[in-house]
């Protein structure tokens, strides 16, 4: 299974939302990481055929997804960042309706299984209008999974979920990813770290870095430091370096710094995390843009 993006670009008037995006994806979890306006949703909407790319194409197993049309949609699952559901429908009706829309026959068993997977079995007969944001999100994921999609795209899937639900959902994404391409966009770096085998960093419509998540973390090895500083030095360091964490102690603070060179006399190099990667690349890109 291969999903290939070839020089995909999208312009809204003069604004370029996505610039020459190229990537090849196989089975596994791909995280799209980037600040607001980086082009994550634009990329997902192009893949969902909700917007027409200005140039470039997307191929699934060598065939253009545009030419595949309904055939591609039958193996595609998508949960947009913001979406509504029919308030008068019960959860089970919603899934039945989308099962019809997806052209699935005999969907009852699948629906029961999915309701259990997303922990909505007890609310199956409740109307959606009474659902919390998290419940709606879980129902959205169930909708996306209804047709056992080969390509599953989730835009901010864990937004609005409590920590327990987030972990549950992360595990679910991991479970279903072994035989499909899962792409998800998020701001929550810990989600990426937990489940994404591959990470694509996007900034202003361009790919900053695209590699497996471990390599990405390794790429800033030796650039993350920790130092115990006096109160007086804290403000100076904050103004001069990218600070990823500050822990106050009685006689000063322990500061985690992302820097190419040793930032402070007693600073020691420590293992980087994906949050440090985020800070390293996006701050760097931002300062270049400035």
């Amino acid at each position: 299974m291969e999903l290939k993006f070839i020089n995909l670009s999208k312009c809204y008037g003069k604004k370029q939302a996505l610039i020459d995006f190229s990537a090849t994806m196989n089975e596994g979890v791909y995280a799209l990481l980037g600040p607001n306006g980086a082009g994550k949703s634009t990329l997902m909407n192009c893949l969902s055929d909700l917007i027409e790319p200005t140039s470039g194409k997307i191929l699934f197993d060598g065939k253009s997804i545009k030419a595949m049309g309904a055939d591609f949609r039958s193996i595609y699952g998508f949960m947009p960042q913001s979406y509504g559901l029919y308030p008068s429908f019960r959860a089970i009706d919603t899934l039945r309706y989308f099962a019809r829309l997806k052209g699935i026959e005999n969907s009852e068993k699948k629906i029961t299984q999915l309701l259990e997977t997303v922990n909505l079995t007890d609310s199956a007969n409740k109307r959606v209008k009474g659902f919390s944001g998290g419940m709606k999100r879980r129902l959205g994921i169930a909708i996306a999974l209804l047709n056992d999609p080969k390509v599953l795209v989730l835009d901010e899937p864990t937004a609005g979920l409590d920590p327990k639900e987030r972990i549950r959902l992360r595990n679910l994404i991991s479970e279903v990813s072994f035989d499909r391409v899962v792409i998800f966009a998020t701001h929550i770096v810990s989600d990426v770290e937990a489940i994404a085998g591959n990470t694509i960093l996007l900034q202003n419509g361009r790919v900053l870095k695209s590699t497996d998540t471990c390599s990405l973390i390794e790429s800033i090895e030796g650039k993350v430091w920790e130092a115990k500083v006096r109160n007086a030095d804290e403000a100076i360091l904050e103004n001069s370096f990218r600070i990823s964490n500050i822990t106050k102690v009685s006689d000063g603070a322990i500061i985690r710094i992302v820097s190419d060179s040793k930032p402070y006399e007693n600073a020691v190099s420590i293992s980087p995390s994906l949050e440090d990667v985020y800070l390293y690349y996006f701050d760097e890109a931002a300062s270049k843009n400035d």
Partner: peptide, 18 residues
């Protein structure tokens, strides 16, 4: 108005048939 159109449009029968 409910913002469900994107969910519908990515379904197999969510465009012409719907």
């Amino acid at each position: 108005s409910l913002n469900t159109h994107h969910l519908n449009m990515v379904c197999k029968n969510g465009r012409t048939k719907l």
